[in-house]
Structures are given as structure tokens and as C-alpha cells.
Design a binder for these strands. Structure first.
Lengths: 159, 159
DNA sequence: TAACCAACGTTGCGAGTGCCAACGATAACA
DNA sequence: TGTTATCGTTGGCACTCGCAACGTTGGTTA
């Protein structure tokens, strides 16, 4: 039975992961994620990925509450609060209590945050190229489609 | 321009991730990884994934040193040591100094560890099914192939 | 109006991962 | 011989993710 995962013959057998792991989609995703994290870390501060996610969301959807941010990103309110506090300290976002609903914090991106977002974008683009280097353009598109299908079909939030 | 990631029209626009993230392979891998982690957490202790990786490696390749384990799994010596200590405390592996090279720890799986590995395997299989549910069999195979290509082409170890 | 419930931001906590640096012990090599 | 390299171990650091609780605010219903 072939699960479609054939290793190159030139692969070093001494460092090959076991078949039980190679067959796991969750393990593969974990490894690709770590790979992306390492590549990002060579160009960005360790918080770059989370910062990018939050900044990209407020930039696309306009000012949002922190809870809404969590829903867009599939993250807990708590996690969002941590990232938002960090971005607020760096003046990359502006937090103001919503006038129509004083429970909410309106999170808006600042000009400085916009510049930071652009920096993150260019660095991230380079990482994507490195990551998808072994794939053809059509293969990369296929991969994104398949991963997107999985993400669309699953609830984004914990609990 | 279509990058192959079309969202369903029935998708809730209030919780959709921004386009800048949807276009990122590294972000998709991150989300699928978190998804797998959550699903695993419903059936296994939080350490299940790491335990499974180490146990599967020693089971397939026989007794190994901890450094070799790290090379097979793409993890630091330190990380391996932590997992191995945990498994050793639970009598799931047996650590003994290698007689031919006393620098090394020979890590072998115990009968108890083998049973634990089998439990992890069945729980993990269920997670894979849930994770790949929105995909057809051929699509899932494609996905594994593409992710495998990426992993094969990149160095497994940090630094 | 008053009582209840839900949502929000915030704080604190815990577990897990992954990396780096350093140490002493051991092995291999010059 | 001395030097270099590898190993296991310890300790530390930063980040992520999640849960629970608190006080505040808004909406709903009796």
C-alpha cells in the first residue's frame, strides 16, 4: 500500500523519521510549522508571526474588538490580549474603549503598525518562497487548496 | 488571480481569517498543527504527541542513542532528553549506558511502552480521520505527498 | 424597575514546545 | 601526548495555547 509518500533514495537513512510518523498528517503539519517558525526566526523577532496575524486582521477588517480578533484567528481571548498588549506597547496598534459598547476595546492599526506590518510581510514572503521551494507553482497551489479545505471544515475556536 | 483557495459562500464572514494569512503556507501549517493538537488533546494526555514520536522511532529503528533520536525527529538533544526522562519515569523506555560507547544512552522500548505506543497509535488514527475528513482519499494522499516533499527537502535539525 | 444572563477585557496560572549555553565525561584523532 | 568532538544532563529563556476567575457593561425578561 502506497500512501503517496515516497522518499528519495539519496535520503540519509540515519536521519529518516519513522514510518509511523511519516504517515501522520498531524505530524507533517507540526514539522512544517516548526520549519516555518525557524525560517521566520532568522529574519524576524520571535513574536513576528503572532504580530503579523493580528496586524493583518485589523488592517483587512478595520477596527475590531479583541474578541472578534480571536474569532478571526481561531485564538483565545487571552492570547489576543497578550499580543495586543505587546503591539500597544510598541505603538503598533491603538486600543480605545468602544463608545457604543464600553465592554469592547476597539483595536486599530497605527501608521507605525502599518510600516511594521509591511516589514513583516516582506520577510514572511521570503519565508514562503524558501518553504515552498521544493514544490512547483501548481503543487504549491494544490497544497494551499487542500490545507484550506481542512481549515474551512473545522471550527476555528477551542472549546 | 486565484491562488487556489476559494472559500465557501456559506462561510461566516465574521470569523474568516484575513487574506494575508490565508495566502501563507506557514500559517496554514500552523493552524492545522494546532487543530491536530486540540483533537489529540481530547483523547490523550498533553504529552501524547511527543511520546508517540519517540516511542515510534525506537520501535522502528531499535535501540538508539538520544542524539540519534533527535536526528530522526528533527529535535534538539535537550528536547529529546526531556521526553526520554518522562518516558523513563513511566517505565515506557529503558535507558542504559552503551557498553561500546559510554557517552551514549541506549534507549529501548519496554513491553509497557509498547502497549502505550499501541494506545497512542489508535487514538492518533482517529485524529487523522477527523482531521482529513473534509478530504477525499486521493486528496489526503496528495496532501501527504506534498508535505513530504517539503520535509524531505529541508534540514531536519535546528541551527 | 429589578433580576438575571451573556459578553467583554483583564489577570493569573499551568503545561508544553523549542532553542541555546554550559558543564563533566567519554571517545576519536593529530 | 594534547586537541577536538560528541554525548547526556542541567538550567534558563521565550513563545504558544488553554482554562478559570474577577469586575464591568450590555441585553433580556419577569
Amino acid at each position: 500500500m502506497n500512501n503517496g509518500y515516497d522518499r528519495s533514495v539519496t535520503e540519509n537513512e540515519l536521519t529518516a523519521p519513522p514510518a509511523r510518523l511519516r504517515a501522520l498528517l498531524s505530524w507533517q503539519a507540526n514539522r512544517v510549522n516548526v520549519l516555518g517558525s525557524r525560517l521566520t526566526g532568522t529574519r524576524l523577532p520571535a513574536t513576528g508571526r503572532a504580530d503579523f496575524a493580528v496586524l493583518a486582521t485589523v488592517e483587512e477588517y478595520g477596527p475590531l474588538s479583541q474578541a472578534d480578533l480571536g474569532r478571526h484567528l481561531g485564538l483565545d481571548r487571552n492570547t489576543i490580549n497578550g499580543i495586543a498588549s505587546r503591539l500597544d506597547d510598541g505603538s503598533h496598534i491603538l486600543r480605545a474603549t468602544d463608545t457604543t459598547d464600553r465592554r469592547r476595546n476597539t483595536v486599530a492599526i497605527t501608521p507605525l503598525g502599518q510600516r511594521y506590518l509591511d516589514q513583516l510581510q516582506t520577510a514572511t514572503d521570503t519565508v514562503q518562497v524558501e518553504l515552498a521551494a521544493p514544490l512547483s507553482a501548481t503543487e504549491a497551489a494544490q497544497l494551499q487548496t487542500l490545507l484550506g479545505k481542512i481549515l474551512d471544515a473545522h471550527p476555528g475556536l477551542p472549546g
